[in-house]
Computed example of a mutant assay.
Amino acid sequence: MLPSLTLATFSSSSSIISKPFFSLSTKLPHSFSPLYLPFPQTKRSISLHTRPMNILKNLGFGAKPAPSMEDSSIAQGPDEDVPAPGQQFAQFGAGCFWGVELTFQRVPGVTKTEVGYSQGLLHNPSYEDVCSGTTNHNEVVRVQYDPKECSFDTLLDVFWAFHDPTTLNRQGNDVGTQYRSGIYFYTPEQETAARESLEKQQKLLNRKIVTEVLPAKKFYPAEEYHQQYLAKGGRFGFKQSAEKGCNDPIRCYG
């Protein structure tokens, strides 16, 4: 069983989280620890992993037009992708999707992870579109898991443990609607479990949880360089282990 986890201490000069946020009463895999240590970041409306954008585009020249009704209808449709036989999907938003993905990669019973964009209004959004804050997309991780080896409740426990669900549109110094906390369910059973889990977590905190619980919408895979970004080494080539049960601290860097 995991040891009792206590609320982390934050400082204004760093977004390093020295330990997860609060106690868990549910058993997790023996060797698993959801410790998440992002590198210090500079306050800005988007995270440090943003690619340089064209100056004219930032000023509004050449930007995509506002989402059309057709765009919105497609983007707000259900995720129609099908998991592998015997597997199930779940979607989570909990800040920068690099660290979120690596955390779920390490969970026994998780068979595949993908980072992408969902819950927005634009069809086929790019990373720059999402970071503009105009499309309402969230950076999410779609988790494929084997329910015989990993329950949805276990995924929920991991989700609550490695991020702060009480900060609106923010994790650490990453600020923007694309960093909001969210659980996106595929089945009525997942919805029930998510809402019951949220109620239990709320009783443990003295701040209001702002996590949204919504049906899973169309999932747009992020650009290839974002996939398994930290496991592949990121910008600096410092690979972080995605082995099952690994409890090495996760460092989220650009």
Rank of each mutant, 00 (worst) to 15 (best):
P3Y: 13
L5N: 02
L7R: 09
L7V: 08
S11P: 01
S13N: 15
S14C: 06
S15E: 09
I17A: 04
S18W: 13
P20H: 05
L24R: 12
Y36G: 01
P40C: 06
Q41D: 05
S45L: 11
I46H: 11
L48N: 05
H49R: 07
L59G: 07
A63N: 08
S68M: 02
S72K: 14
D79T: 03
E80L: 15
D81G: 11
F89T: 07
A90S: 13
A90R: 04
W98Y: 10
W98R: 04
E101Q: 15
L102T: 07
L102Y: 12
T111A: 08
K112A: 14
T113W: 12
E114I: 07
G116E: 04
Y117N: 06
L122K: 13
H123D: 11
H123I: 02
N124I: 12
N124H: 14
Y127Q: 08
Y127W: 08
E128L: 04
K148M: 13
K148N: 14
E149D: 09
S151E: 03
F152Q: 00
L156W: 00
T167M: 12
Q171G: 03
N173V: 00
T177H: 13
R180P: 04
E191T: 07
T192H: 12
S197Y: 01
E199D: 13
E199H: 15
K200T: 04
K200R: 14
Q201R: 15
K203S: 14
V210E: 15
P221E: 08
A222W: 05
E224C: 02
E224S: 11
E224N: 08
Q227E: 10
Q227W: 03
K232G: 05
G233L: 04
G234L: 00
F236K: 07
D248H: 10
Y253W: 03
G254Y: 01
